[in-house]
């Protein structure tokens, strides 16, 4: 019988581990994931960048959101259920990234605003919207974005933000008024 060195045994162990974990680690198969990612990644990036106020944070958190979704053992009933779960992960990650980090909005001016194109009326209007959103609370930004950019229902927003469905109407009302006041010249 041939001698088996420690390195051989170690290599065999790692190979066996790779073979064992290659198929069971992630909950979705590749095709399903890639389709879901292609349908949702741009919108999710927009949500992350506008809620955090930082494009770099959005870039960093995007991969993490999908990884946590893939590692989750939640039995999704539909694509909408999966998407809402993804947005819930994103909301929690943005919330966590704010702890101990530098302020994402400084005096209402965010990183995205600095890089925005200037010189046109549209660009100036977008800058105003970003500045106004930067003055909202993170939860208010998320509420408005989910309602008007994503078109989510009150129940879906409540699921993403972890609040009662019955309180969404009032929270949205207040956030709308606040943003409108900030947008007025």
């Amino acid at each position: 019988m041939a001698d088996v060195t420690y390195l051989d045994a170690r290599r065999l162990h790692v190979d066996a581990l790779d073979a064992e974990t290659a198929d069971v680690a992630l909950a979705m198969d590749e095709d399903a994931f890639r389709g879901f990612y292609d349908r949702t990644s741009r919108a999710l990036w927009g949500y992350l960048s506008r809620i955090s106020g930082d494009r770099q944070v959005a870039d960093d958190l995007l991969q993490e959101c999908y990884y946590r979704l893939l590692k989750s053992s939640v039995p999704f009933e539909s694509e909408a259920h999966r998407r809402n779960y993804l947005y819930r992960i994103a909301t929690n990650l943005v919330h966590d990234s704010r702890r101990g980090a530098r302020p994402l909005f400084v005096e209402g001016i965010d990183v995205a605003e600095v890089a925005a194109p200037r010189g046109t009326a549209d660009a100036e209007q977008r800058t105003d919207v970003r500045r106004a959103m930067g003055r909202l609370k993170p939860r208010e930004r998320a509420l408005l974005w989910l309602a008007y950019a994503q078109g989510s229902s009150h129940a879906e927003i409540a699921g993403v933000l972890g609040v009662k469905t019955g309180s969404i109407k009032l929270l949205l009302f207040r956030a709308r008024r606040k943003l409108a006041a900030l947008l007025q010249p």
């Binding site: 990036w45 960048s49 494009r55 209007q125 919207v129």
Partner: peptide, 14 residues
Amino acid sequence: AIAAEASCAHAEAQ
């Protein structure tokens, strides 16, 4: 305002 911002974010996203 938010719809315009969303379409801008969609175009920016890479």
